[in-house]
Design a protein around this nucleic acid. Sequence first.
DNA 1: TAGTGCATACTACCATACAAGCGTCGACCA
DNA 2: TGGTCGACGCTTGTATGGTAGTATGCACTA
Lengths: 230, 230
Amino acid sequence: MRSAVNTPFPVSHGSAAQRIESELRRLIVALELPPGVRLSESDIAERHGVSRQPVREALIGLARTRLVEIQPQRGTVVVKISVRKMMEARFVREAIETAVVRRACSSFDRQSRERINDLLEMQEQAARRDDHAAFQRYDELFHIALAEGAGCPLAWEAVQDIKAHMDRVCQLTLPGPEAMLPLIEQHRTIMSAIDAKDEDNAAEAMRRHLTEILRALPQVEAEHPELFSS
Amino acid sequence: MRSAVNTPFPVSHGSAAQRIESELRRLIVALELPPGVRLSESDIAERHGVSRQPVREALIGLARTRLVEIQPQRGTVVVKISVRKMMEARFVREAIETAVVRRACSSFDRQSRERINDLLEMQEQAARRDDHAAFQRYDELFHIALAEGAGCPLAWEAVQDIKAHMDRVCQLTLPGPEAMLPLIEQHRTIMSAIDAKDEDNAAEAMRRHLTEILRALPQVEAEHPELFSS
DNA sequence: TAGTGCATACTACCATACAAGCGTCGACCA
DNA sequence: TGGTCGACGCTTGTATGGTAGTATGCACTA
């Protein structure tokens, strides 16, 4: 069994379908499979050394989260980024996560609180060495720990798919440590408000955090129009 | 193209997998497939006259929304109702839908507003003739129209899976018109607040509405303990 | 030259067959 | 009689073959 001490990434799941889905999701979020490219069941199956069936199940899973679009009898493509839908996604995510931090102000699990400190530290290290993948993974773990600490792990599930799309945008807007470090500072601001049990400040800090993430969206759309839908 | 004037239910989707998934979801939400029962790919395939593959894909889809649990190499069961998770689900749904109605107070699509009036009327008729399925379907269409009218259809997608679980509880708590009609009145209260552009009242009305839905949850747990997880 | 119909090569989709893992029941043994 | 081991039947998971539908490009026509 592979050790995971040096990486925040979990080992691959059980079935081949789940493995491939995770792998494809990673590639899509990292924009290594850019929006618009066609995905062929046969190609992917061959590349991964499995049959087409598990690949098909993986693509169905990705289609459910709107990361790919399966066009019946035609093909499967990585969906392009829609500014409108990103704005809607931010709205929904803001609604959920501001509610979570408000709840966190009432009571927060001590163990999760300590874990978050560790996560923030490791996320900062990832940012300083310009490691996007690790940065985003620790960001994910931060929001997971937040939801769990607030006693609402189900909230994470609702945010998960939305976050995947936003992370795809972040891949374009976070070109270096100087762009990542402020986000970590925002995380710390959120936690300070939670520690102080200041609901309004915590919610506002989260709101600003999520707004900030998509601030540069119009700019990257101008720079990479081929990645966006009309 | 089949007319749908006499039924709020859409015609079945394209692929066999989607058809079966919709059918199974309907049966599960209606508690005709009660929590705890085992689902066999072979049985369902035979019953629907298809092979195991589309059934398998349908079950994977249902597992993603946590309506069934696939136990690898063992079997697939309809998940039992968890009071704790239902409370979390209500929390998340409340966060999203209160945000939606607040947004609706700022601007609301006129066409959607008119459609909601029709939906409420039809939902009331369904309640009076004690038609649970139609009642819940119109309830769904109400919340869809609400999200669309507020300009955030993506919010519905986030709520959809949560609502499916809550509807399963409603199947137990809404035994007659006298239980359904008050919910429609709550819908009307929400719309009145939106028409008056009163954000706080609209959000509070939505909050009370969603709280009301699960009010009888402890009671039904006592009456049907076999449907609930420990 | 512009336009139309057809052959072809691709796709997703479904059916069938096989493999692998888990639980259960029964035979066998102490 | 109590306990242990093993074979069988069930499940999900994977591989492979075949089908139907769509886009594309080429030959043919006006």
